[in-house]
């Protein structure tokens, strides 16, 4: 890896135009690629997903300077190949620095539980009443009862079960973000 290579505005522009001729679209694509790379690396069990995603993009930007004019097709496979190589390097480094395999994740101890509960309570209060109600109802049943229950809920809302699933997921993402912020800040009053 050439570590003395510096990211310049010009290089970044060339990279964006390789992603998409329209700069705004290219910007969106770049954001998506970065976010999705983090998710993919997480799926691979990489606990430095953000750093590796950024390094992947840096390497692709560097290579784009030479190949942008000649490369044909979607850039996705190229990103995945670079991310794969980086991940393998990362794993090898990890094995060298630590002879032990990655520890099995310990079950989370309970001390934080009440604080998490209070934070979640606060985050639920911040949701719009309709969304709060949806979360409570969507996650309230189990197994077959849950399937029936969600169908009924979707019917009441006049949407399909899949649309309901997506809606619940998006609210849950908001809750996760709020919970992370709350836990990172001081104690809940």
């Amino acid at each position: 890896m050439k570590r003395n290579w510096e990211l310049t505005g010009e290089a970044f522009d060339k990279f964006l135009s390789w992603l998409h001729p329209d700069r705004e679209e290219a910007g969106k694509k770049y954001e998506d690629i970065r976010r999705h790379l983090i998710i993919i690396l997480n799926c691979r069990g990489c606990d430095a997903a953000e750093e590796l995603a950024d390094e992947t993009i840096n390497r692709v930007i560097r290579r784009a300077q030479q190949m942008a004019d000649t490369y044909r097709g979607e850039p996705a496979p190229y990103f995945i190949t670079v991310a794969n190589n980086l991940f393998l390097e990362y794993r090898t480094k990890l094995q060298i620095t630590s002879e032990l395999p990655a520890d099995f994740p310990e079950p989370d101890p309970d001390p934080d539980d009440d604080r998490e509960y209070d934070c979640l309570d606060q985050c639920m209060e911040e949701l719009r009443p309709a969304n709060r109600d949806l979360v409570l109802r969507y996650y309230s049943e189990d197994k077959q009862a849950k399937i029936d229950h969600r169908k009924q809920l979707a019917d009441e809302m006049g949407i399909g079960v899949n649309a309901l699933r997506i809606r619940a997921h998006r609210i849950r993402l908001t809750l996760q973000e709020c919970l992370d912020k709350c836990l990172a800040s001081g104690p809940v009053m």
Binding site: A49, E116, Y117, L120, Y139
Partner: peptide, 23 residues
Amino acid sequence: NYFLTTPARRRKLKMARVLKRYV
């Protein structure tokens, strides 16, 4: 052994546990 090996996923597990209790 595979899914739960990253901190992000363990955070999600924590969130799921507390959400379950809350609901």
